[in-house]
Protein backbone atom coordinates (compact mmCIF):
# COMPACT_ATOMS: atom_id res chain seq x y z
CA UNK A 1 0.00 0.00 0.00
CA UNK A 2 2.96 2.31 0.50
CA UNK A 3 3.24 3.16 -3.12
CA UNK A 4 4.41 6.54 -4.17
CA UNK A 5 4.44 8.06 -7.53
CA UNK A 6 7.86 7.90 -9.10
CA UNK A 7 8.87 10.88 -11.10
CA UNK A 8 9.55 9.41 -14.45
CA UNK A 9 12.41 11.03 -16.27
CA UNK A 10 11.20 12.57 -19.46
CA UNK A 11 13.14 13.20 -22.56
CA UNK A 12 10.89 16.03 -23.46
CA UNK A 13 10.33 18.51 -20.74
CA UNK A 14 6.72 17.64 -20.30
CA UNK A 15 4.78 17.45 -17.10
CA UNK A 16 4.15 13.78 -16.24
CA UNK A 17 0.45 14.59 -16.00
CA UNK A 18 0.19 14.60 -19.79
CA UNK A 19 1.81 11.22 -20.08
CA UNK A 20 -0.63 9.89 -17.61
CA UNK A 21 -3.55 11.45 -19.36
CA UNK A 22 -2.42 9.87 -22.62
CA UNK A 23 -2.00 6.56 -20.93
CA UNK A 24 -5.50 6.87 -19.57
CA UNK A 25 -7.00 7.82 -22.91
CA UNK A 26 -5.56 4.73 -24.51
CA UNK A 27 -6.95 2.53 -21.79
CA UNK A 28 -10.22 1.13 -23.12
CA UNK A 29 -11.56 -0.11 -19.81
CA UNK A 30 -10.90 3.22 -18.15
CA UNK A 31 -12.75 5.02 -20.93
CA UNK A 32 -15.66 2.59 -20.66
CA UNK A 33 -15.72 3.30 -16.93
CA UNK A 34 -15.64 7.02 -17.54
CA UNK A 35 -18.60 6.78 -19.89
CA UNK A 36 -20.62 4.84 -17.34
CA UNK A 37 -19.73 7.37 -14.67
CA UNK A 38 -20.77 10.22 -16.92
CA UNK A 39 -24.11 8.59 -17.67
CA UNK A 40 -24.59 8.07 -13.98
CA UNK A 41 -23.73 11.68 -13.14
CA UNK A 42 -25.98 13.01 -15.89
CA UNK A 43 -28.86 10.89 -14.57
CA UNK A 44 -28.25 12.25 -11.12
CA UNK A 45 -28.13 15.88 -12.19
CA UNK A 46 -31.00 15.73 -14.65
CA UNK A 47 -33.20 13.41 -12.60
CA UNK A 48 -36.02 15.94 -12.29
CA UNK A 49 -36.00 16.51 -16.04
CA UNK A 50 -35.65 12.87 -17.09
CA UNK A 51 -38.06 11.33 -14.61
CA UNK A 52 -41.54 10.78 -15.97
CA UNK A 53 -43.10 10.72 -12.50
CA UNK A 54 -42.68 11.90 -8.95
CA UNK A 55 -40.44 9.27 -7.32
CA UNK A 56 -42.01 9.59 -3.89
CA UNK A 57 -45.70 10.02 -4.39
CA UNK A 58 -47.59 6.81 -3.79
CA UNK A 59 -50.46 5.95 -6.04
CA UNK A 60 -51.80 2.84 -4.39
CA UNK A 61 -54.21 1.71 -7.07
CA UNK A 62 -51.42 1.67 -9.69
CA UNK A 63 -49.35 -0.85 -7.80
CA UNK A 64 -47.19 -3.57 -9.36
CA UNK A 65 -47.51 -2.63 -13.01
CA UNK A 66 -45.03 -4.75 -14.96
CA UNK A 67 -42.40 -3.21 -17.27
CA UNK A 68 -43.43 -2.08 -20.71
CA UNK A 69 -42.34 -5.25 -22.56
CA UNK A 70 -45.00 -7.23 -20.73
CA UNK A 71 -48.48 -7.39 -22.08
CA UNK A 72 -49.88 -5.69 -19.00
CA UNK A 73 -47.15 -3.07 -19.03
CA UNK A 74 -47.78 0.48 -20.21
CA UNK A 75 -45.56 3.17 -21.62
CA UNK A 76 -46.62 5.27 -18.69
CA UNK A 77 -44.31 3.27 -16.45
CA UNK A 78 -41.48 1.97 -18.63
CA UNK A 79 -39.92 -0.14 -15.91
CA UNK A 80 -43.16 -0.82 -14.07
CA UNK A 81 -44.24 0.27 -10.63
CA UNK A 82 -43.58 -0.96 -7.11
CA UNK A 83 -46.18 -2.02 -4.59
CA UNK A 84 -46.99 1.56 -3.69
CA UNK A 85 -47.59 2.35 -7.32
CA UNK A 86 -44.46 4.46 -7.69
CA UNK A 87 -42.69 4.57 -11.04
CA UNK A 88 -39.52 2.49 -10.84
CA UNK A 89 -37.69 4.35 -13.62
CA UNK A 90 -38.14 7.65 -11.79
CA UNK A 91 -36.96 6.12 -8.56
CA UNK A 92 -33.89 4.69 -10.27
CA UNK A 93 -33.02 8.09 -11.75
CA UNK A 94 -33.43 9.86 -8.43
CA UNK A 95 -31.57 6.99 -6.81
CA UNK A 96 -28.50 7.97 -8.82
CA UNK A 97 -28.52 11.27 -6.92
CA UNK A 98 -28.59 9.50 -3.59
CA UNK A 99 -25.80 7.11 -4.54
CA UNK A 100 -23.63 9.89 -5.94
CA UNK A 101 -24.15 11.91 -2.80
CA UNK A 102 -23.25 8.94 -0.62
CA UNK A 103 -20.11 8.25 -2.62
CA UNK A 104 -18.89 11.84 -2.53
CA UNK A 105 -19.71 12.57 1.08
CA UNK A 106 -18.50 9.35 2.68
CA UNK A 107 -15.31 9.16 0.65
CA UNK A 108 -14.83 12.86 1.30
CA UNK A 109 -14.96 12.25 5.03
CA UNK A 110 -12.52 9.39 4.73
CA UNK A 111 -10.22 11.30 2.41
CA UNK A 112 -9.81 14.37 4.57
CA UNK A 113 -9.72 12.67 7.94
CA UNK A 114 -7.56 9.83 6.67
CA UNK A 115 -5.06 12.08 4.91
CA UNK A 116 -4.77 14.34 7.92
CA UNK A 117 -4.28 11.47 10.34
CA UNK A 118 -1.84 9.78 7.99
CA UNK A 119 0.17 12.96 7.55
CA UNK A 120 0.35 13.60 11.26
CA UNK A 121 1.24 10.01 11.90
CA UNK A 122 3.98 9.87 9.30
CA UNK A 123 5.45 13.26 10.03
CA UNK A 124 5.67 13.15 13.79
CA UNK A 125 6.26 9.41 14.11
CA UNK A 126 6.82 7.85 17.51
CA UNK A 127 4.09 7.95 20.09
CA UNK A 128 1.50 9.82 18.05
CA UNK A 129 2.07 7.50 15.13
CA UNK A 130 1.65 4.52 17.38
CA UNK A 131 -1.65 5.70 18.80
CA UNK A 132 -3.09 6.59 15.42
CA UNK A 133 -1.99 3.37 13.84
CA UNK A 134 -3.44 1.31 16.70
CA UNK A 135 -6.76 3.03 16.15
CA UNK A 136 -6.54 2.18 12.47
CA UNK A 137 -5.80 -1.43 13.45
CA UNK A 138 -8.93 -1.47 15.57
CA UNK A 139 -11.01 -0.34 12.63
CA UNK A 140 -9.37 -2.95 10.46
CA UNK A 141 -9.71 -5.72 13.03
CA UNK A 142 -13.31 -6.17 12.14
CA UNK A 143 -15.38 -6.98 9.08
CA UNK A 144 -16.14 -3.46 8.00
CA UNK A 145 -19.82 -3.94 7.27
CA UNK A 146 -20.32 -5.20 10.82
CA UNK A 147 -18.59 -2.13 12.19
CA UNK A 148 -20.78 0.05 10.00
CA UNK A 149 -23.87 -1.76 11.31
CA UNK A 150 -22.81 -1.14 14.90
CA UNK A 151 -22.07 2.49 14.17
CA UNK A 152 -25.38 3.08 12.47
CA UNK A 153 -27.17 1.33 15.31
CA UNK A 154 -25.46 3.86 17.55
CA UNK A 155 -26.11 6.93 15.43
CA UNK A 156 -29.60 5.91 14.37
CA UNK A 157 -30.52 4.63 10.92
CA UNK A 158 -30.50 7.37 8.32
CA UNK A 159 -28.71 8.14 5.10
CA UNK A 160 -26.61 10.79 6.82
CA UNK A 161 -25.43 8.41 9.50
CA UNK A 162 -24.75 5.66 7.00
CA UNK A 163 -22.48 8.09 5.14
CA UNK A 164 -20.68 8.95 8.35
CA UNK A 165 -20.24 5.30 9.26
CA UNK A 166 -18.87 4.43 5.85
CA UNK A 167 -16.62 7.46 5.95
CA UNK A 168 -15.14 6.38 9.25
CA UNK A 169 -14.48 2.80 8.22
CA UNK A 170 -12.68 3.99 5.08
CA UNK A 171 -10.30 6.25 6.99
CA UNK A 172 -7.47 3.69 7.33
CA UNK A 173 -7.25 3.23 3.56
CA UNK A 174 -6.27 6.85 3.10
CA UNK A 175 -4.33 7.23 6.29
CA UNK A 176 -1.99 4.43 5.32
CA UNK A 177 -1.23 5.79 1.88
CA UNK A 178 -0.41 9.24 3.17
CA UNK A 179 1.54 7.98 6.15
CA UNK A 180 3.76 5.77 4.02
CA UNK A 181 4.39 8.49 1.54
CA UNK A 182 5.09 11.10 4.18
CA UNK A 183 7.54 8.82 5.93
CA UNK A 184 9.40 8.18 2.72
CA UNK A 185 9.56 11.83 1.72
CA UNK A 186 10.66 12.93 5.17
CA UNK A 187 13.88 11.02 4.71
CA UNK A 188 14.73 13.22 1.75
CA UNK A 189 16.98 16.21 1.87
CA UNK A 190 14.57 18.82 0.68
CA UNK A 191 12.33 18.26 3.66
CA UNK A 192 15.22 18.63 6.04
CA UNK A 193 16.18 21.76 4.16
CA UNK A 194 12.70 23.18 4.40
CA UNK A 195 12.70 22.45 8.07
CA UNK A 196 16.07 24.08 8.49
CA UNK A 197 14.89 27.32 6.95
CA UNK A 198 12.05 27.26 9.44
CA UNK A 199 9.08 26.31 7.30
CA UNK A 200 6.01 25.33 9.29
CA UNK A 201 5.38 21.59 9.60
CA UNK A 202 1.96 21.72 8.07
CA UNK A 203 3.19 23.77 5.20
CA UNK A 204 5.88 21.26 4.42
CA UNK A 205 3.39 18.48 4.41
CA UNK A 206 0.96 20.24 2.15
CA UNK A 207 3.34 21.90 -0.24
CA UNK A 208 6.03 19.31 -0.60
CA UNK A 209 4.79 15.94 0.44
CA UNK A 210 1.12 15.85 -0.35
CA UNK A 211 1.40 16.29 -4.11
CA UNK A 212 3.65 13.27 -4.24
CA UNK A 213 1.07 10.84 -2.98
CA UNK A 214 -1.77 12.36 -4.93
CA UNK A 215 -1.67 9.57 -7.53
CA UNK A 216 -2.43 6.69 -5.21
CA UNK A 217 -4.91 8.87 -3.37
CA UNK A 218 -6.87 9.57 -6.54
CA UNK A 219 -6.92 5.88 -7.34
CA UNK A 220 -8.08 5.04 -3.85
CA UNK A 221 -10.75 7.73 -4.03
CA UNK A 222 -12.20 6.39 -7.25
CA UNK A 223 -12.23 2.83 -5.96
CA UNK A 224 -13.61 4.18 -2.68
CA UNK A 225 -16.56 5.67 -4.57
CA UNK A 226 -17.32 2.22 -5.88
CA UNK A 227 -17.23 0.47 -2.56
CA UNK A 228 -19.05 3.30 -0.79
CA UNK A 229 -21.97 2.92 -3.18
CA UNK A 230 -22.00 -0.82 -2.51
CA UNK A 231 -21.76 -0.48 1.26
CA UNK A 232 -24.39 2.22 1.45
CA UNK A 233 -26.73 0.06 -0.60
CA UNK A 234 -26.05 -2.86 1.73
CA UNK A 235 -26.82 -0.74 4.78
CA UNK A 236 -30.00 0.56 3.21
CA UNK A 237 -30.92 -2.99 2.26
CA UNK A 238 -30.68 -3.91 5.92
CA UNK A 239 -32.90 -0.93 6.75
CA UNK A 240 -30.05 1.04 8.30
CA UNK A 241 -29.38 3.57 5.58
CA UNK A 242 -31.76 5.69 3.57
CA UNK A 243 -35.24 5.70 5.05
CA UNK A 244 -38.39 5.60 2.97
CA UNK A 245 -39.60 7.21 0.90
CA UNK A 246 -36.07 8.18 -0.24
CA UNK A 247 -35.48 6.50 -3.59
CA UNK A 248 -32.32 4.60 -2.70
CA UNK A 249 -31.35 1.52 -4.70
CA UNK A 250 -30.50 -0.75 -1.77
CA UNK A 251 -33.70 0.18 0.03
CA UNK A 252 -35.64 -0.48 -3.17
CA UNK A 253 -34.22 -4.00 -3.29
CA UNK A 254 -35.19 -4.53 0.32
CA UNK A 255 -38.75 -3.40 -0.37
CA UNK A 256 -38.97 -5.57 -3.46
CA UNK A 257 -37.72 -8.62 -1.66
CA UNK A 258 -41.12 -9.63 -0.33
CA UNK A 259 -42.47 -9.42 -3.86
CA UNK A 260 -40.01 -11.95 -5.24
CA UNK A 261 -42.78 -14.41 -6.05
CA UNK A 262 -45.05 -11.88 -7.61
CA UNK A 263 -43.12 -8.99 -9.17
CA UNK A 264 -39.50 -9.76 -9.92
CA UNK A 265 -38.79 -6.40 -11.52
CA UNK A 266 -39.22 -4.41 -8.32
CA UNK A 267 -36.18 -6.13 -6.83
CA UNK A 268 -34.07 -6.80 -9.92
CA UNK A 269 -33.87 -3.42 -11.62
CA UNK A 270 -32.32 -1.41 -8.76
CA UNK A 271 -29.65 -4.10 -8.40
CA UNK A 272 -28.63 -3.63 -12.02
CA UNK A 273 -28.36 0.08 -11.39
CA UNK A 274 -26.03 -0.50 -8.47
CA UNK A 275 -23.98 -2.96 -10.48
CA UNK A 276 -23.46 -0.51 -13.34
CA UNK A 277 -22.63 2.46 -11.19
CA UNK A 278 -20.11 0.51 -9.15
CA UNK A 279 -18.66 -1.12 -12.24
CA UNK A 280 -18.12 2.30 -13.78
CA UNK A 281 -16.05 3.51 -10.86
CA UNK A 282 -14.14 0.25 -10.66
CA UNK A 283 -13.26 0.28 -14.36
CA UNK A 284 -12.14 3.87 -14.20
CA UNK A 285 -10.26 3.34 -10.96
CA UNK A 286 -8.42 0.41 -12.50
CA UNK A 287 -7.43 2.45 -15.49
CA UNK A 288 -6.30 5.27 -13.26
CA UNK A 289 -4.18 2.90 -11.28
CA UNK A 290 -2.45 1.74 -14.42
CA UNK A 291 -1.80 5.31 -15.44
CA UNK A 292 -0.95 6.99 -12.17
CA UNK A 293 0.57 4.23 -10.20
CA UNK A 294 3.36 2.71 -12.28
CA UNK A 295 4.43 0.32 -9.59
CA UNK A 296 1.06 -1.35 -9.58
CA UNK A 297 1.16 -1.83 -13.31
CA UNK A 298 1.51 -5.32 -14.67
Amino acid sequence: MMVTMKKTSNAEDRHPFWDQADQLRKNKTAMAGLIIILVFVVCAILAPVLSPHNPIEASLYDQLKPPVWYEAGTSKNLLGTDDLGRDILSRILYGARVSLLVAVVSVGIAFFTGSLLGAISGYFKGFIDNIIMRIMDIILAFPHILLAIVMVAYLGPSLKNAMIAIGVIYIPRFARIVRGSVMEECEKDYVAAARAIGAKDMRIIFNAIFPNCLGPLIVQTTLGFASAILDAAALSFLGLGAQPPTPEWGAMIAMGRSLILRAWWVMTIPGLAILFAVLGFNLFGDGLRDALDPRMRD
Binding site: I56, L60, P244, M255
Partner: peptide, 13 residues
Protein backbone atom coordinates in the same frame (compact mmCIF):
# COMPACT_ATOMS: atom_id res chain seq x y z
CA UNK B 1 -45.48 0.22 8.74
CA UNK B 2 -43.11 2.03 6.41
CA UNK B 3 -45.24 1.53 3.34
CA UNK B 4 -48.31 2.65 5.25
CA UNK B 5 -46.32 5.72 6.24
CA UNK B 6 -45.37 6.49 2.64
CA UNK B 7 -49.00 6.20 1.58
CA UNK B 8 -50.07 8.48 4.43
CA UNK B 9 -47.64 11.28 3.63
CA UNK B 10 -48.78 11.15 0.02
CA UNK B 11 -52.35 11.62 1.22
CA UNK B 12 -51.33 14.47 3.48
CA UNK B 13 -49.45 16.24 0.74
Amino acid sequence: GLKVGVAMISDLS
